[in-house]
């Protein structure tokens, strides 16, 4: 019933991806505005999907891997819409749309929309814990996008091979400033998510806790390394990409483990 909304949303992101590819291929001006509105439309459809699914479940729609991926994609789009214009990173849409499109396409195509084996009751703390953690993942995803943009630009500046996209990227120092702020925001949200996990009332799954603390420590180490000037900006950008890749893998593992029936 609710899947058409998600398909509509995915098509909006696909439009942004196609528009970017065509502009890059034709070497014509890339306009952030189209991507911004395409992502905005995709976000509205995503929100409608999550709302319909949430009403059907009677709780926050984070009960299986499918919903986790959609919620993560929604968080990425939300943070982009909030952060992109603020930091004048309109081109971020060109990088964000493919990420969100990939997440949702995977969610739609993979056989992961399986109802949770046990009936889940509404638990405000659990829902807060899950949703705030997902939004933190969304922020980390955007820090990963900013990291990719930084590395692309740094590489072009080092090799003196300035491609068309170079002229649309924000200045290197501004990009790194935005990346650092995204890291701090994501880390703060993730910390809040971790702390709220202790108030959910149920027994805390050991594997989940270890994985979650592993991600928290990874991002904490990046921030500490940055604060103490151990890592050069290029290394921080590369670590952001690596950390997000690791975090998504962990997220997958956590949900995979939690959906398996108890042995």
């Amino acid at each position: 019933m609710d899947r058409p909304l998600l398909i509509a949303s995915t098509l909006c992101y696909l439009a942004a991806v196609v528009r970017t590819l065509l502009a890059v291929r034709a070497r014509v001006a890339l306009h952030g505005r189209f991507n911004f509105f395409a992502i905005g439309a995709g976000f509205l459809s995503q929100t409608a999907f999550l709302s319909v699914r949430g009403h059907a479940l009677g709780r926050c729609p984070l009960t299986n891997l499918f919903e986790v991926f959609v919620f993560l994609a929604w968080s990425v789009a939300l943070i982009y819409l909030l952060v992109g214009p603020t930091y004048r990173l309109s081109l971020m849409g060109a990088f964000t749309a493919p990420l969100v499109f990939a997440l949702q396409t995977f969610a739609l195509l993979a056989p992961i929309d399986i109802p949770h084996p046990a009936r889940l009751f509404a638990n405000p703390w659990l829902e807060f814990h899950a949703s705030i953690s997902m939004i933190a993942y969304g922020v980390f995803a955007l820090s990963c996008v900013a990291g990719v943009m930084y590395l692309v630009q740094e590489r072009q500046l080092k090799t003196h091979q300035l491609r068309s996209i170079f002229y649309y990227l924000p200045p290197l120092t501004n990009l790194f400033g935005a990346l650092t702020r995204l890291l701090w925001l994501g880390f703060a949200l993730y910390t809040a998510g971790l702390i709220s996990g202790f108030f959910t009332g149920g027994p805390l799954p050991r594997v989940k806790m270890i994985c979650a603390f592993g991600v928290w420590l990874f991002y904490g180490a990046i921030l500490q390394g940055r604060h103490l000037r151990w890592f050069a900006p290029k290394r921080v950008a590369a670590l952001c990409v690596l950390a997000f890749t690791a975090a998504v893998s962990v997220l997958w593992a956590i949900n995979f483990v939690s959906q398996r029936p108890p042995m």
Partner: peptide, 18 residues
Amino acid sequence: GAVSVGSVAVDLAVKIFG
């Protein structure tokens, strides 16, 4: 893109520092 040595240097400075 800039098309003279001086303006290329200035453009690059702006791309690095804002």
